[in-house]
């Protein structure tokens, strides 16, 4: 199939960017979106032009590196997949596809379609540690965990940190990301000791960078792991509960 791409090109963080149009011919219907971009880049290389920069790594939907805005939808038109898992058969011959980087004040463009997502790392860092025993591996059944808690924690832990939730949000809020990270630790017994400190620290770090939640639900539909916005409500509840915990008795403050 033949396609027309409108791609955001930007030479560097400070450079002014603009859209460039590329015609791609003979794209396989079985190619992934990233493979299609590879094909464009090979042609650009052959012409001696600068290839389109985009983030990618595992190309099987588990690393969270890839992610672009495709025709106004994060990760493209297919629900529950990352850009690397999107096949070109989702498009038709002759389509015009607009490809843009994630847009948010906290995610400045580094080059072309690559954005700096390090504010996510700041949120993770502020979460501190969990009291998981280190050293030799503990017996698998040493700490009983209810099945419901395991399932919910696993649903939250599926977050790959790609940033599609922020990209989809009209307020550039990172509530779904932060809620998923908070829930996957706060639901489990190993995460209880630091629960209240962690919740407050991660929420407040998030708010330094990102907007607030107005409950549109766009993040949930953009998420390649389809993480539920119920986790955001759960984070809201935990953030409030944390206010009523005696801070001198939470986590390591009481040591």
């Amino acid at each position: 199939m033949d396609l027309t791409l409108r791609v955001w090109r930007q030479a560097g963080p400070k450079a002014a960017g603009d859209f460039k149009t590329y015609h791609v011919e003979d794209v396989s219907r079985d190619a992934s979106f990233l493979e299609m971009l590879d094909q464009v880049n090979e042609a650009l290389n052959a012409q001696g032009e600068e290839p389109i920069a985009f983030d990618h790594d595992c190309r099987e939907g588990i690393c969270g590196m890839c992610g672009v805005m495709i025709n106004g939808t994060p990760h493209g038109p297919q629900r529950g997949t990352a850009t690397c898992q999107l096949h070109m058969r989702k498009f038709s011959d002759g389509d015009m596809i607009t490809v843009e980087p994630w847009r948010a004040a906290a995610f400045p463009v580094l080059r072309d379609l690559v954005v700096d997502r390090s504010p996510f790392d700041r949120i993770i860092e502020s979460g501190g540690y969990i009291t998981a025993p280190t050293g030799s591996a503990p017996d698998a059944n040493l700490i009983p965990v209810p099945k419901d808690a395991v399932d919910s924690a696993f649903d939250a832990a599926a977050c790959i940190g790609c940033g599609a939730c922020v990209a989809a949000c009209p307020n550039s809020a990172a509530n779904l990301f932060t809620a998923a990270k908070i829930a996957h630790l706060n639901l489990l017994p190993q995460g209880q000791a630091e629960r209240w400190n962690r919740t407050v620290a991660m929420v407040e770090t998030m708010e330094e960078w990102f907007g607030s939640c107005t409950n549109h639900g766009e993040c949930e539909t953009a998420c390649p792991q389809e993480i539920s916005i119920d986790f955001i409500a759960w984070m809201n509840a935990d953030y409030v509960r944390a206010q009523f915990k005696n801070p001198s008795k939470t986590g390591r403050d009481n040591l």
């Binding site: 805005m69 106004g72 607009t98 843009e100 463009v109 809020a173 549109h216 639900g217 539909t221």
Partner: peptide, 25 residues
């Protein structure tokens, strides 16, 4: 705060709203 968080450059493609409805927007 939300306007500040959104940054200056907006998406060029028309946003395809999947969950946000007329009332919420």
């Amino acid at each position: 705060r939300n306007v500040d968080a959104r940054g200056k450059v907006r998406y060029h493609a028309k946003r395809h709203w999947a969950a946000a409805n007329y009332a919420s927007r």
